[in-house]
Design a protein around this nucleic acid. Structure first.
Lengths: 212, 212
DNA sequence: ACGCACCTTGAACAAGTGTTCAATACTTTT
DNA sequence: AAAAGTATTGAACACTTGTTCAAGGTGCGT
């Protein structure tokens, strides 16, 4: 089963070349642009090799999806070499980092979301990764605000994720960078809000929203 | 040129039936699920008729895109029968309304975004609609906060849109409804924030973000 | 040297794609 | 009633799609 090891060091092995070609095409042209032939051409290999490493087209896409999910999870991975609140602050600012806010990555994410929406199989992988992301973020919030109950941490994490998703999406549509910066500040405000109290901080002193 | 008029009243004319079938398929199965044959089947017409009303497949998709954009713009359309701030509040809450937060609509929006990301032609239509939406929202903010300079209104509108997009996207991924409600409250907070001042409200009294 | 396990190729196939078009039905005008 | 205009059909087209597979290539242990 296991695919062979190091390939002379110079260039990456063809299996990951194929996967990266698929991700590149997906981010640039959407799923309609990802045909097995196009992937093979982009990766510089023969058509048959794509099906050799990835049985199906769905297997290939699934691999891409998992890879991006994995990458996303790293954003909220705990890093014990820095203080908890600095750790959280860094994680929050990372999502506006130059490497993430590239069209290539954002577009890839968008297309994967769209795929997950259309296909039950992808949807499950996606939902699981989403949950783990919120959990990771909540854990960071928890260590930065010791004493805050876990449910409150998850609540904050959910609220932050809403804004982060909005930033990702809106960055793709070309909103101004200043708005992104303000949104980052808003996530920090949520993350570091004082314990609980009368919630005046969250609602700005206005009347509560009545459930419709 | 002009397509003929009223069709006996009972059922909608086939042209819009075709368009709606396309939107339905797009929202349910993504762009790969929208073939001319599938659209024809879904609309209950023959294959040829789809190409009769819509020259291209891209013409069909473009029509769907425009229709959704139009629908979105209605969300921030001025309604002079109510007071300005009530008008704004209603617009902000509308995005969490039962009719909008359906998977059918959200999914459609997502797939259209993905398409726009992959195709320059759709992208332009989308960007234009996005701008008009922000403009409409800024106008509502402006009449609810008379005296606030226009640039500040647009700024607030951008910030609100980030959160709204996040809500739409996250609702699709199945986050809890409570988080959506809190996000709505957050948009209201931005919309109705006091004029300017020391911005303590926006930043929660924490140190300003330093530009990286 | 042979054998064996893995890697790589491109041709072949069936199924599906968007688009075109002659032929037919229906409506309205003359 | 005939003519003209518009709707509607499904067969036909050239083309692309995902997948399979026999054929050959590569390296390696023995």
């Amino acid at each position: 089963m296991g695919i062979s090891a190091v390939n002379s060091g110079e260039q990456v092995d063809r299996q990951t070349r194929i996967l990266e070609a698929a991700m590149d095409l997906l981010s640039r042209h959407g799923i309609s642009g990802v045909s097995m032939r196009a992937v093979a051409r982009e990766a510089g290999v023969a058509l048959g090799l794509v099906n050799y490493y990835y049985d199906d087209k769905t297997t290939l896409i699934r691999a891409a999806l998992r890879r991006v999910d994995e990458h996303d999870l790293l954003l909220v991975a705990p890093d014990h070499s820095v203080a908890p609140d600095e750790q959280l602050r860094r994680a929050l600012r990372r999502v506006a980092g130059a490497d993430l806010l590239t069209t290539r990555y954002l577009s890839l994410r968008l297309h994967l979301w769209a795929l997950a929406q259309a296909d039950e199989d992808y949807a499950q992988i996606n939902a699981a990764a989403f949950d783990r992301y919120i959990d990771g973020l909540a854990a960071l919030v928890s260590s930065a605000n010791p004493g805050l109950p876990w449910e409150a941490c998850r609540e904050r994490a959910s609220d932050i994720v809403v804004i982060q998703n909005g930033m990702w999406l809106t960055a793709l549509l070309g909103v101004d960078k200043a708005s992104i910066q303000r949104s980052i500040a808003r996530t920090e405000q949520i993350a570091f809000a004082p314990a609980e109290g009368p919630r005046a901080d969250e609602n700005g002193g206005r009347p509560e929203l009545t459930q419709p």
